[in-house]
Design a protein around this nucleic acid. Structure first.
Lengths: 191, 191
DNA sequence: TTGACAACTTACTAACTAGTAAGTAAAATC
DNA sequence: GATTTTACTTACTAGTTAGTAAGTTGTCAA
């Protein structure tokens, strides 16, 4: 018996990576198992079903995001720096083998993923939106951002843009992605 | 032999619908065949491989879009009405069983679709961007739109937003989608 | 030292996948 | 009226899928 340390975490890492790379219908237990050098059944031992595994990936991501935004390092940033921090989450994904955000990946195949997973995706999307909304609201009140309309709507626009731009970059390249980020900031920062 | 009139077109319609609903990895020849009341092999007769079929769907969509934008009905519209026409393409998709745009669907699973299909998706995305870019440029020159930066970048932002918003709507509902459209227009139309 | 448990492997199933080859019947062409 | 072509069906293959059941082995606690 070859022991892999922290199997559960390693499986989650690989599953997250595959979800962002190929989507729910594009990856299999065989992919994970072969990459890990174990048999399919070993994955089923830790996560009985594909739904269980995918849900665990999203839940871990939700926990991680919650930790980040409650961390004093992020809380202490200026309004503009908070926004930049959020954007780096997406630029980092793009830099990491052209990954796409989990939410976008799973919403694109929303109608062919299990119900429990749909619920997790919905919850994550709401949490991302909520943070961005309040960050935009506070930033505008403080004079750091300039935009018309409701912070909730502007947050939905910006999050949709980031999600779409990561996908666009797969066909049209990273330069296009960077241009989008720059344009979003231009729209938001100058008066 | 039960004859289906215009089989080829009917198959393309169904395949397009399935691609927008479940994505490339989420649909099979069996889905199409059963919906059509024929056997799998009948689909293979018209489109030998899944790649052939998917490419044909995108090519037809590209032709359709080219026809639309060269049609005098669209060419004769005001700048604002042109933008509204473009937005209705997406609101219609949302209204039609929560479909997602072809480009977004296939870019989300870009790394697990055939190469030839990737090329078609890329070509379609470029064509959509090109039209939107020139529409934005002309509209701003004429004083109908107001935005900072390059039309090419603003077009990439708006297209990414629409693409992301259709996906977002699957988890968060149609109201959120309409809010995004309204916000994009607010950002673009008022001075 | 024993026995329980964790973390696997082996071996399997049933369903589904894309794709093929050969046959058939109606319709169009000659 | 004969022949070819079109649009299928039947029957199949080889590979992949998620998932299960039973057996194995190293580790650790009592």
């Amino acid at each position: 018996m070859v022991k892999i340390e922290n199997s559960k975490r390693t499986i989650l890492n690989l599953a997250e990576s595959l979800l962002q790379d190929k989507g729910f219908n594009g990856f299999s237990y065989a992919h994970i198992a072969s990459e890990l050098g174990v048999k399919n059944a070993a994955i089923h031992y830790h996560f009985p079903t594909k739904e269980d595994l995918s849900i665990a990936v999203i839940q871990r991501y939700r926990d991680r995001f919650k930790l980040w935004i409650n961390n004093s390092r992020v809380k202490g940033l200026s309004h503009e720096a908070k926004l930049d921090w959020f954007f780096t989450i997406y630029t980092d994904m793009r830099a990491d083998k052209g990954k796409v955000c989990l939410v976008g990946s799973m919403e694109a195949e929303f109608n062919s993923i299990p119900e429990g997973l749909q619920g997790e995706v919905q919850a994550l999307h709401k949490e991302l939106l909520a943070w961005l909304q309040s960050t935009l609201a506070e930033g505008r009140d403080a004079g750091a951002f300039s935009f018309k309309g409701e912070p909730a709507d502007k947050a939905a626009v910006i999050l949709s843009t980031l999600q779409g731009a990561l996908q666009m970059a797969r066909a049209l390249g990273t330069k296009k992605f960077r241009d989008v980020i720059a344009q979003v900031k231009l729209d938001l920062l100058s008066p």
